[in-house]
Structures are given as C-alpha cells and as structure tokens.
C-alpha cells in the first residue's frame, strides 16, 4: 500500500449530507448506491483508497465526526504535518 493517507469511515454516523464529497480534493468520496446505514442514510464511501492524501478536509467539514484520518509518516524521521486546524 502506497497511499499517503487513509480515512476510516464510521458509516453509521453518516447522514449522507454530502459536504465531504464537495471538499475532497482528489474526488474519491461518494454516497453509497442502493445501500443504507443503520439509520437509513446512504453513507459515504471511498472509491479509491490509494488516492487518499490524508488531507483531512472531509473530517474538517463533516458535521457528524464520521472520519478518522491517518497520514503516512514523513521519511527520514521527519514528523508528520500537524493535525488539522
């Protein structure tokens, strides 16, 4: 796996509002087709995990704390970029 980042989606928290779709710079989020979460919403899905940069914009716009975001540690012992905000 070579992705720079990784998001974990707590899909039962998702209300399918779609705000994350609009802010994802690599356009790898979509709402599920024909599938619903336990609360009856079409949850967000990731279409191409390898393309994720770990920018956390989805987490920043999400009103329902659906996303946990990881970023691959920088090489040569450099620290990862600071957390969001």
């Amino acid at each position: 796996m070579t992705a720079k980042g990784m998001v974990i989606i707590d899909e039962n928290r998702c209300k399918g509002c779609g705000l994350c779709l609009a802010v994802c710079p690599v356009h790898i989020l979509k709402l599920a087709d024909g599938r619903f979460n336990t609360r009856g919403y079409r949850p967000v899905e990731i279409t191409d995990p390898e393309a994720c940069t770990g920018c956390a914009m989805c987490a920043i716009i999400c009103p329902d704390v659906v996303f946990t975001v990881y970023r691959r540690r920088a090489r040569r012992g450099q620290p990862a970029p600071p957390p969001t905000g």
Partner: peptide
C-alpha cells in the same frame, strides 16, 4: 507508519446528534 491526523475528540460523546443532515 500511518499517524493519526484527525481523531474523534474526547470532549464529544459518541451519541448521534439529532441535527439535520448537513
């Protein structure tokens, strides 16, 4: 080698909010 950059805040409970989507 993955480090968390966004995690669920401790100061929130895990309850689903009643707010409308979005």
């Amino acid at each position: 080698d993955m480090e968390p950059v966004y995690q669920y805040p401790e100061s929130l409970t895990s309850r689903f909010t009643h707010y409308c989507p979005g």
